[in-house]
Computed example of a mutant assay.
Amino acid sequence: MNNELKMSYQAELMAAADAAHQSDFTTAFSHLERAHILSQKFAFAHAATHLRMLRLGWRTRDAREIFGQLTRAAAALVFSRIWVPLGNTGRASVSPFEPMHVPEDLANILKSTKRDNRSS
C-alpha cells in the first residue's frame, strides 16, 4: 500500500471509529464502505475492514450484517489478490460480486497507486 493510499485508508477508519463512538452508525458504515473500496486489493486490510463492519453490525444488532461480514471477512483473505469487484462497498446489503461506482476522490487515490506500482 503506498503512503497516500495507506493514509486515506487510515483516515476513513478513524472517521468511522469517531462516528461509531458518537453512535452515528450510518456515518460510521459510510466511512467503512470507503475504507473497503481502498483496501480491496490488500488481503489483511480488506479482511480487517470487514471485521470492523462485523463489529459495527454486532453493535447495531443487525443479524444480516453480522452473518454477511463473517463470510466476507473469510473470503477477503482468499480472494483479495485474485479478483475483487471494483468499488463494491462491502456491506451485507449488496452482492459481494457486484462492481460499483467508485467515488471520484477514491478513484484518484487508486489511480495513483496503480501508477506507483507500474513505476516500481
Rank of each mutant, 00 (worst) to 15 (best):
R52E: 02
L77P: 08
H36I: 01
T89F: 00
F42R: 03
N108K: 15
L32N: 08
G87V: 09
A43Y: 09
R52I: 00
S23G: 02
Q40R: 05
V84W: 05
Q40W: 10
G87D: 04
P103G: 09
D24A: 14
H50W: 07
H101T: 14
Q22N: 14
N88W: 05
R72E: 08
D24K: 14
L32R: 02
Q40G: 06
W83V: 11
T71F: 07
E104A: 15
F42A: 01
G87Q: 02
H101F: 13
L51K: 06
F29H: 07
S80V: 05
A63W: 14
A48Q: 00
R34N: 15
L51M: 12
H21S: 14
S30V: 01
D62E: 12
V78C: 06
R52G: 01
H36V: 00
F79E: 05
A63V: 15
S23I: 10
T27A: 15
A45N: 01
S95G: 15
R34A: 15
A92M: 05
G90A: 05
R34T: 11
W83T: 04
P96C: 09
R61G: 02
F29S: 06
T60G: 03
A48I: 00
V102P: 06
R91L: 14
A73R: 03
I37F: 06
W58I: 13
K41D: 12
R61Y: 09
T71N: 02
F29A: 07
A35P: 10
H101P: 04
Q22P: 02
I66M: 15
R59W: 05
D24G: 04
L56S: 03
N88Q: 04
R55V: 02
A74E: 02
T27I: 11
R55C: 01
E104M: 11
L106E: 05
H21A: 14
R55E: 02
R91C: 03
A19Y: 11
R34E: 12
A75W: 01
L110D: 11
R52L: 05
H50R: 03
W58K: 14
S93H: 07
L110K: 13
R72S: 03
W58S: 08
I109F: 02
F67T: 14
Q40F: 05
G68F: 05
W83A: 11
R59A: 12
F29E: 13
R81H: 13
P99A: 09
D105C: 15
Q22I: 08
L110V: 09
L54A: 03
K41L: 13
V78F: 12
G68M: 01
Q22C: 12
I82Q: 08
K41F: 03
A74R: 09
L70H: 08
A63Y: 12
A48M: 06
S93W: 01
A107E: 11
I109Y: 04
Q22W: 05
Q40N: 06
H21Y: 10
Q40P: 12
P99D: 08
A20L: 12
A92R: 04
G68W: 01
V84N: 08
V94H: 00
A35L: 08
T89R: 00
T27L: 14
S93N: 08
Q40S: 11
F79V: 09
G68H: 06
S93Q: 13
D24C: 13
H31D: 02
P85D: 12
A47R: 10
A35D: 03
R81S: 12
